[in-house]
């Protein structure tokens, strides 16, 4: 970010005192140079997300928080705990399990559910499982469609959830940049991008027609860097895969794929090599590319992020399938 260095009044140059311990986020008294006390941008984002969660709790009949185990879900979980403290979140959590997540993700999911006493629903598309759908034989498009998109629709119908929280951010992808915080889906779970409800001020209208449901994105206005800074400042637990470590890697079509278990068929002559990598985003292990990195602490990750030159979705194989692919997937019911 060249701009930072060019600016003559760059504040970070004059700030002093490196701290090993993260400064508290909610320290409104001490920030700002002037006499007026102001909220920092992270405090404003946090307050907005909590507000959105409470609106859903108050307006929806049967809400659920989609829990994907990734860093955004970790932040959502923390915000939900804050929003309803000292009570617990008045809705269950749900993981749409494709059965191809990293093993460390499953361990982490169980740990979080146990530590916070969460009502954690795990849904697997049994039909897809029976047909043996997997990313190797059927390709990423079919696998994602059956085990993720279809599976999600099944689960929402099965439990009759009328509002589902998702961790998507508008900075992730172009069509998401245009999506409302409260995003309506038809009874067939389709998104109509040309006919979105006006969303003014903090007035979220969650009334819906029969059969309609809502996807709610409390992190809409967060950027990837905001998420990491928040994790750092709040010391939020995340899956260890985000930290750099020696891992068994094969290189396919330029993506670094971790061989997480023996279900992964190796090409003739292909041999996993140990490389120091980490993941910027987590999904199904055969579809998630790692990046080479030495960042093995939160501070180092944030530091890497500050200098990042590549946006995070590049590691995801499914987004590159076709032009406007995310918009199309969303219209079909992908979160």
């Amino acid at each position: 970010m060249a701009l930072r260095q060019e600016s003559p009044e760059s504040r970070w140059v004059s700030a002093s005192g490196a701290q090993a311990v993260a400064p508290p986020l909610a320290d409104a008294e001490t920030n700002g140079a002037g006499s007026a006390r102001r909220l920092t941008h992270l405090q404003r984002l946090e307050a907005e997300s909590i507000y959105i969660m409470r609106e859903v709790a108050a307006q929806a009949e049967n809400a659920v928080m989609l829990y994907s185990i990734g860093k955004d879900s970790s932040v959502m979980l923390r915000l939900a705990l804050k929003a309803f403290y000292p009570g617990t979140p008045p809705f269950p959590f749900m993981h749409i399990d494709t059965t191809w997540k990293f093993r460390e993700m499953y361990q982490f999911r169980e740990r979080m559910a146990r530590e916070h006493g969460l009502d954690m629903i795990v849904h697997i598309n049994q039909e897809g499982l029976r047909r043996g759908i997997n990313p190797f034989t059927h390709g990423s498009a079919v696998h994602t469609d059956v085990m993720k998109t279809e599976s999600l629709k099944q689960a929402l119908d099965k439990y009759a959830f009328d509002a589902a929280f998702g961790g998507a951010r508008r900075d992730e992808e172009r069509s998401r940049a245009k999506e409302r915080v409260f995003s309506f889906r038809s009874a067939q779970h389709r998104w109509d991008p040309k006919n979105q409800r006006p969303e003014l001020w903090r007035l979220y209208n969650a009334r819906k027609r029969k059969g309609e449901s809502i996807r709610v994105f409390p992190l809409s206005n967060w950027t990837e860097l905001d998420v990491w800074q928040y994790i750092y400042l709040e010391q939020i637990p995340i899956v260890p895969l985000y930290f750099a470590k020696e891992r068994p890697i094969v290189e396919r079509d330029g993506a670094l794929i971790m061989v997480d278990d023996d279900r992964m068929p190796l090409e003739p002559g292909e041999k996993p090599r140990m490389r120091k990598v980490r993941f910027r985003t987590l999904g199904c292990y055969p579809l998630t590319g790692a990046v080479e990195s030495d960042a093995d602490t939160l501070e180092a990750i944030v530091s890497e992020m500050v200098q990042a030159r590549t946006s995070e979705r590049q590691g995801r194989v499914i987004d590159h399938d076709q032009d406007a692919s995310m918009e199309k997937k969303k219209q079909e019911g992908y979160f």
């Binding site: 760059s10 504040r11 970070w12 140059v13 700030a15 002093s16 005192g17 490196a18 701290q19 090993a20 400064p23 986020l25 920030n31 700002g32 102001r38 920092t40 941008h41 992270l42 404003r44 984002l45 860097l225 800074q229 750092y232 400042l233 602490t297 501070e299 180092a300 944030v302 530091s303 500050v306």
Partner: peptide, 24 residues
């Protein structure tokens, strides 16, 4: 990352500045 490593002071300072940046 230990505090003594090169760049960590700069990083902490930058994080502090980011933390205090306002929002428009």
């Amino acid at each position: 990352m230990a505090v003594t490593e090169p760049g960590s002071e700069e990083l902490a300072a930058r994080l502090e500045a980011d933390r205090q940046a306002g929002l428009l």
